[in-house]
């Protein structure tokens, strides 16, 4: 297991000068594991076990990968195992969240027969936030549009004092979607993924580079603390590559889990890093969303 990111003594001194909302920190654990396809009960037990251990280790937030409760290639399984608000699994997750904040991925049936690929945040014994995946890949080995209804928004929510946002897998590869969180002043961006490893060459697997490139962009240019959690394991020969990582605001990737194998990654998130990054090169201050909006309208309505 990788160790938590450490701060230098100089950084601590700066933190102590900040307003209260910037002093807090949060110990986050990313779980890089292999769910069993279509066995939500077994997967829930895995979640319970990881949560217990994270609580013992003093973590405050635990993040599981995309579709962590179900597995990825759901095809006709989705309707049989979709999570339902108020159902037994839902209540179990709420109960688990009394001691630690939890983000899980699940097929979510909000209305009868309508299923979303969702990320759910539970804290202090209650459900707090749902992000419904907007960018559903539907090409090559992917067929998410056959299963899920796309979501339609990117809303932030609070994790402790931090403003957070969630992206699910392919959404991470659309920089404009992370931008939407950037202009909502997120301190913590969470990307959860089921990325199949593909594109082998002499330098390794090209799909690994996709996620790390975006992590660098979010950290350096959107000044967000970014936790990327990818699953591992195989489904009918399709392997999921892992390589979860933590990118500190303004500093790039500072911790990375193993590729291919199960692993855990701990990181201490400091909102103060966001402030430091903004002061160093204030892209947020200089960003002109109104101009972007005006130009988008001009382009779209031309």
């Amino acid at each position: 297991m990788a160790a938590a990111c450490q701060l230098g003594p100089g950084q601590r001194a700066v933190v102590s000068q900040l307003p209260l909302c910037y002093i807090s920190s949060m110990k986050v654990r990313a779980i890089q594991f292999s769910p069993t396809l279509g066995n939500s009960e077994k997967n829930l037990q895995s979640h319970i076990s990881h949560v217990s251990r994270a609580v013992r280790d003093g973590c405050e937030l635990i993040v599981f990968p995309e579709l962590s409760l179900s597995g990825y290639h759901l095809k006709d399984l989705a309707c049989d195992i979709a999570l339902k608000q108020g159902g037994r699994e839902w209540r179990e997750l709420e109960k688990l969240s009394k001691k630690i904040d939890i983000i899980v991925g699940a097929p979510l049936e909000e209305d009868a027969g309508i299923i979303y690929n969702a990320a759910l945040y539970f804290a202090k014994g209650k459900w707090r936030h749902t992000h419904r995946k907007v960018q559903l890949p539907n090409y090559g080995m992917f067929e998410e549009r056959m299963i899920f209804k796309p979501g339609d928004d990117f809303r932030t929510f609070k994790i402790g004092t931090m403003t957070a946002g969630i992206l699910i897998c392919r959404e991470i590869l659309f920089p404009m979607l992370a931008y939407l969180y950037f202009i909502q002043k997120t301190d913590l961006l969470i990307g959860i993924s089921n990325s199949p490893q593909r594109g082998i060459g002499k330098d390794g697997v090209s799909s690994f580079q996709l996620w790390e490139t975006m992590g660098y962009v979010f950290s350096q240019f959107y000044h967000q603390n970014y936790v990327f959690v990818n699953r591992v394991g195989f489904e009918d020969g399709i392997g999921f590559g892992g390589g979860s990582f933590f990118a500190r605001a303004g500093q790039g990737i500072c911790r990375k889990a193993k590729y291919v194998e199960e692993d855990m990654l701990d990181a201490v998130i400091l909102p103060a890093d966001v402030r430091r990054a903004r002061l160093a090169s204030n892209y947020l201050r200089d960003e002109q969303p109104q101009l972007v909006l005006k130009e988008l309208q001009r382009i779209l309505h031309a």
Partner: peptide, 10 residues
């Protein structure tokens, strides 16, 4: 259109 992976519940 009976669509399940071999790894169903595996």
């Amino acid at each position: 259109d009976f669509r399940y992976l071999r790894d169903w519940n595996k």
